[in-house]
């Protein structure tokens, strides 16, 4: 008898990890990826929190795993049609003409970073020295931080909650990882720019993961990173192409203004276009934040409202890498139980 086959949409962290676990459990996997290489958003990162590991190390590991003989990787392609014949039979058409068949479907379409230009008052795309956290990772990869005028920045501001916890942007949710990303990036900046003044503008410091609060403390104590509690209200550009920002220092209770040489927007997470497309195609309910709604917030985190369709990673909500990997393994387990007919939970 042929082994049962699982179709996975999205070869980011969750997709790769789940594919490998399913392959090891004896299933075959069709792994579909829109980019030409697997890795997803991980490909844009330089170092990871909390241990400052090179992102490339994890990326290489995931890429090696998907070389497993039971995994067929389809890159540079997206599904154009998904047919669900019944809970255990799926057919998927790809835009390259291929047709895949499977006995279960796993959605690992991940997230997209918030388009910072939507936050008009911060002037991203208009002001020269406003960049996003994703672009800063690229600066780190090149080991060079310069302003648009070729100057070493003397004061840098990292702005948290850009596109998160913001009703005006239709994003009520917290993107979870931006706080710790800001701490990590502030520390990396300090290493490259020992004399610069580095400030994080935050609403709350949500240090939810192991080692995160410790990292925050280290950033304050050893890296001399300054933290300002207050959400930026607006930014503008002066004649020297610096960014003039306004916020309230809510711990002082007064408005504050200052000039930054470089402003980094910690862009939040939103449901990816792929997630939205798959949800529509399969009629998967969405949570109010636009991510795919899991079957149950405790017992059925990898199931969806449609039997046989599973979900893992940031397609369901913002997650860090640790949780994404764990969630992917959990999804592999749930799919295994489903296909072997020994499910424990409905």
């Amino acid at each position: 008898m042929n082994p049962m086959n699982v179709i996975i949409i999205g070869a980011g962290t969750a997709g790769c990890e789940a594919a490998y676990r399913l392959a090891k459990a004896g299933f075959t996997v069709e792994l579909v990826e829109k980019e030409c290489t697997p890795g997803g958003n991980l490909n844009n990162w330089f170092q990871l929190f909390p241990d400052r590991k090179q992102a490339s190390a994890l990326r290489q590991l995931l890429q090696q795993q998907v070389e497993h003989p039971s995994i067929r990787l389809h890159t540079d392609t997206v599904p154009v049609k998904i047919e669900r014949q019944d809970a255990r039979h799926y057919a998927m058409e790809l835009d390259n003409g291929a047709r895949l068949e499977g006995n279960a479907l796993l959605v690992t379409t991940g997230f997209r970073t918030f388009d910072a230009s939507r936050k008009e008052e911060y002037g991203y795309g208009i002001y020269e020295n406003v960049i996003t956290s994703v672009e800063l990772e690229n600066y780190f990869a090149n080991r060079q931080i310069l302003t648009s005028t070729g100057k070493r920045p003397e004061r840098i501001g990292l702005i948290q909650c850009v596109g998160s916890r913001d009703e005006k942007m239709c994003n009520f949710h917290c993107s979870k990882v931006c706080c710790i990303t800001a701490v990590k990036q502030a520390m990396e900046l300090r290493e490259l720019l020992p004399d610069a003044e580095i400030l994080c503008f935050y609403m709350d410091m949500r240090m939810f993961g192991p080692g995160y609060e410790e990292m925050y403390r280290e950033a304050q104590e050893k890296y001399n990173i300054k933290f300002v509690r207050g959400r930026l209200s607006e930014a503008s550009e002066n004649q020297a192409k610096q960014v003039v920002v306004k916020c309230e220092d809510t711990l002082v209770g007064k408005p504050m203004r200052m000039t930054l040489d470089l402003m980094v927007l910690m862009v939040g997470m939103e449901a990816s276009d792929g997630s939205r497309w798959v949800a529509k195609e399969l009629q998967l309910p969405l949570a109010p934040n636009g991510f795919i709604q899991p079957g149950d917030p405790h017992y059925a985190t990898n199931r969806t409202a449609v039997e046989g369709v599973f979900v893992a990673g940031c397609a369901t909500s913002p997650m860090n890498l640790t949780d994404t990997l764990t969630d992917a393994r959990s999804a592999a387990l749930a799919i295994g139980e489903f296909l072997n007919g020994n499910e424990h939970y409905n």
């Binding site: 008009e120 008052e121 208009i126 607006e234 503008s236 550009e237 002066n238 003039v244």
Partner: peptide, 27 residues
């Protein structure tokens, strides 16, 4: 042009040959 970068007046200025100036306290 919206509230952050309104174009109603700067659009006239540009159409009539002038150069709109964006300065930090413009809003």
């Amino acid at each position: 042009g919206g509230a952050e970068f309104p174009a109603v007046l700067s659009g006239m200025v540009t159409a009539w040959g002038g150069e709109p100036v964006d300065y930090p306290e413009r809003r």
